[in-house]
Design a protein around this nucleic acid. Structure first.
Length: 443
RNA sequence: GCCCGGGUGGUGUAGUGGCCCAUCAUACAACCCUGUCACGGUUGUGACGCGGGUUCAAAUCCCGCCUCGGGCGCCA
């Protein structure tokens, strides 16, 4: 049974997909299109479940009814009451012969974009008119799938004995010092929007809760302008006490795979709406784990770069792409040089120049960054100083390492990048209802 | 932060100095049409981002501004 969620006058509303031949129903939704053939006309009504055809035979129906039904503009909200009949000539095999039509909310005739999809709209136009944009089945499908992805991720974290947590988004200090933060005023004090739950999730991993995850917003003030960056993004974070980096990699891999499996299993209609049902593939087998050294060797071997990479270089975007094409599936890059990973990542015990940091890559881009954390107080303080950060500013964080901080590891996964790569979207903004980027602050 | 490319009716486009009081599609308005499913047909409505400059002549070239997108850096 569906829970009634309509206004009182529409409690008895039937969804279009449930309108069965022989029944008298009231359907409600948006006017998708009207095709007036002269003596007969068809109105296509759309709701969240699909579309249904409403037939108007002018000679056989009340003039007022015909006038109301055919005089309404596209995308107006109407309700239609009438008998449902089987009709092979109708698009869905059934159609409604109306006895009553009510215009619930009329729409202006000039629409800022065309929800029927006959004319394309640029992403910018679409985002400025997101409500109308979401009336297109293929756009709606992205967010239904995004919801399923988050559900599947939550479930898999629970299977890994994690507790869901929520950490503050208004903070006094940054996390890693590196990226730009959005400054705000907090009752007259300087504060920032948090760029990552990193420090907080570590503090909770060190509590009795041990294994935690969070799906929440992060804010980065970098002025980048690319199809894979946002200034407000959703981070899917894991942190586990008594874990090392290899277990964190296992969890990351399990999450990504379970997301693909859930989409394949539960989103058939949405994949179909997006036109990718046939080529959609769930990753199989273990994700290859390349060391940083192997990664730069393979990139160099592709010959894609003008200059060969040497040990200690960060991987340029072009190199990432070349490697992604070469590997052809999700893969990890492990054993990064300590110098290019943040201070809170632990180095290997037997080689201090190598860190336990890892990235999980989709062939198109980086998805996950993680590692085993430095839980030893003295080493942590050293790390702060080496990175040019004042440990005193992070005392709320560092002091907890003095009271029994277990070894722990974790990762952060880019939520929008996950949606984007699962669905093959061209632009990360398509994976967010109301994206925040360099030039977009509203809607 | 550095670099590159765009902005033409409501929407998406054609147009690189005169052939443009601007093309096509869709939308909108009106009329015709009884089985459409991107319905079809006829007629009509509606636009060169803003400001300045060059030129006999500017949608087209130059400068500034606004705005959108992309590449790199950095990252999720």
């Amino acid at each position: 049974m569906r829970i009634p969620r309509q206004p009182m006058s529409m409690r008895n509303r039937t969804y279009t997909e449930d309108a069965a031949p022989g029944a008298d129903v009231t359907v409600a939704g948006w006017v998708h299109e009207i095709r007036d053939l002269g003596g007969i006309a068809f109105l296509i009504l759309r709701d969240r479940t699909g579309k249904i055809q409403v037939k108007f035979e002018k000679d056989e129906m009340d003039d007022d009814l015909v006038e109301t039904g055919l005089g309404v503009s596209r995308e107006s909200v109407i309700s239609v009451t009438g008998a449902v009949d089987e009709e092979p000539r109708a698009p869905t095999g059934v159609e409604i012969t109306p006895t009553a039509v009510e215009v619930v909310a009329a729409a202006d005739t000039e629409l800022p974009l065309d929800p029927s999809g006959k004319v394309d709209a640029e992403l910018s136009t679409r985002l400025n008119n997101r409500t109308l944009d979401l009336r297109k089945p293929e756009v709606k499908a992205i967010f239904e799938i995004r919801s399923e992805i988050q559900r599947a991720a939550r479930e898999m974290f629970r299977e890994h004995d994690c507790t869901e947590i929520n950490t503050p988004k208004i903070v006094a200090t940054g996390t890693e010092g590196g990226t730009e933060l959005f400054p705000i005023t907090y009752f007259g004090e300087e504060a920032f929007m948090n760029q990552s739950p990193q420090l907080f999730k570590q503090l909770i991993a060190g509590s009795g809760i041990e294994r935690v995850f969070e799906i929440g917003p992060i804010f980065r003030a970098e002025e980048h302008n690319t199809p894979r960056h946002l200034n407000e993004a959703t981070s899917i974070d894991f942190e586990g006490a008594f874990c090392d980096h290899t277990e964190a990699m296992d969890v990351a891999e399990a999450i990504v795979k379970s997301v693909y499996e859930a989409v394949a299993e539960n989103c058939e209609a949405q994949l179909d709406a997006l036109g990718i049902a046939d080529e959609f593939e769930v990753p199989e087998g273990d994700f290859p784990r390349l060391t940083y050294e192997e990664a730069i060797e393979r990139i160099n071997a592709t010959g894609a770069l003008d200059e060969q990479l040497v040990w200690g270089d960060d991987l340029p975007t072009e190199g990432e792409h070349a490697l992604g094409e070469d590997v052809g599936e999700h893969y990890f890059i492990t054993d990064w040089p300590s110098d290019i990973k943040p201070f809170y990542i632990m180095d290997h015990e037997d080689d201090e120049s190598l860190s336990t940091g890892f990235d999980l890559m989709h062939p198109r881009m980086e998805l996950v960054s993680g590692g085993q954390r430095e839980h030893r107080y003295e080493h942590l303080i050293e790390g702060f100083e080496q990175q040019g950060l004042d440990p005193d500013a992070f005392e709320y964080y560092t002091k907890m390492f003095k009271y029994g901080m277990p070894p722990h590891a974790g990762f952060g996964l880019g939520g929008e990048r996950l949606v984007m790569t699962v669905l093959g979207l061209e632009n990360i903004r398509e994976a967010v209802l109301f994206p925040r980027d360099r030039q977009r602050l509203s809607p």
